[in-house]
Simulated assay, not measured.
Amino acid sequence: MTKLSIVIPCYFNEQNIPATTKELISSESLFDEEVEFEYIFVDDGSGDNTLQELLKFKKLYPSKVKVLKLAGNVGSYNAVVAGMEVASGDCTVIIAADLQDPPELMVQMYNYWKQGFKLVIGNRMDREESPVQKFFSNTFHSIMKKIALKNIPDGGFDYVFFDRQIREEVVKMKERNSNIFYLMTWMGYAYINIPYVRKKREIGKSRWTLQKKIKLLIDSLLSFSFFPIRAISVIGIGLGLGAFIYGLYIMISRFMGFIDVEGWSALMVVVLFVSSFQMIAIGILGEYVWRGLDASRERPLFVVEKVY
């Protein structure tokens, strides 16, 4: 028997759970009879009746459903790690609780895993969302592909199927303020990606706010790229070279009597520009320093209040 662990992070998903669990159970018939299923739902500090809906599902299938209740909201990525930590399958898949990702795609992922691929990625070739959401998502993944991880597929992804070995490595790393899906590709395992169209959310309201998206962009960029630090160095060298050349020009012009050195306006523009750059540079360095401090504290990524 092959055991498949299905990890589903949940946050304010009480309306989604009945439909999602029904689809998951239905998709079991698409697999070989040799596959044993383990469902791990992680309630990421939801403030609604998500936990109650999950416990209803567990009563129907007590032997193959685990429900983790976290003490507080720690973010979907940390919630996924919590689910991975208690998973016991030979392979694992992470799927959202809102049915935007097709459960039936897991069968194709499983078949690739049986062929020897330790990582199978469902990447979004398109999405049934607003132009603004598409623009943000496409821009985010384009930035990451160009300056951080050149081996990631186009379109972005958070629907992944992977081997026990990858799961154990991710859990062992305990990465903070990072992106666990990018972390899997960073490991270097050969993977195959399956393009699909991400569906529009039909039930409930997304809690994936603009603030969370911006934080994810910053976390992903700083975790997998030295570009921000390198950019500071390059811009600093450029500004220094420009200042040196301009200083020589001013001194030569002054001694030769070409100009009267006044230039209060020009001086203020230069001072304000350089000061702004210094503050931005300090902010970027501060982000790196804070992440180092956060890691040195060794606080847990999550606190499990109860396991059902």
Rank of each mutant, 00 (worst) to 15 (best):
K3A: 09
K3H: 12
I6H: 06
F12Q: 00
N16D: 05
T21D: 05
K22L: 11
S26V: 00
S29C: 04
E36R: 14
G45T: 02
S46C: 04
S46L: 02
N49K: 15
T50F: 05
T50R: 04
K56S: 08
K69T: 13
G72T: 09
N73S: 06
M84R: 01
T92G: 00
V93K: 09
D98E: 02
L99F: 04
Q100A: 08
P102T: 00
P103E: 13
P103W: 05
E104M: 05
E104F: 04
L105V: 06
M109Y: 03
Y112P: 02
G116K: 08
F117T: 01
F117V: 10
L119V: 07
V120F: 06
G122Y: 11
M125G: 01
R127H: 06
S137M: 14
S137Q: 10
S142I: 09
S142K: 10
I143F: 11
M144P: 07
I147S: 08
I147A: 09
L149G: 10
F157Y: 14
F157Q: 06
F161I: 07
E168I: 06
M173D: 03
N177S: 02
S178C: 05
N179K: 04
F181P: 08
Y182K: 08
L183S: 14
L183V: 00
T185N: 09
Y191Q: 02
Y191V: 00
N193W: 06
N193R: 04
R198E: 13
K199R: 13
R201P: 02
R201N: 00
G204R: 03
S206Y: 03
R207Q: 03
T209N: 00
K212W: 00
K212L: 06
I214L: 13
L222H: 15
S223M: 05
R230C: 05
R230Y: 13
I232Q: 05
S233W: 01
G236C: 10
I237R: 11
G238K: 00
G240S: 10
L241M: 07
G242H: 00
G242N: 12
A243V: 05
I250Q: 15
I252S: 02
R254P: 10
F258R: 11
I259G: 11
G263S: 14
W264L: 15
S265H: 11
L267Q: 14
M268R: 15
L272R: 03
A281F: 13
G283C: 11
I284A: 04
E287F: 12
G292K: 15
L293T: 09
A295W: 07
S296D: 11
R297M: 07
R297D: 04
F302Y: 15
V304Y: 08
E305L: 10
K306V: 01
Y308E: 13
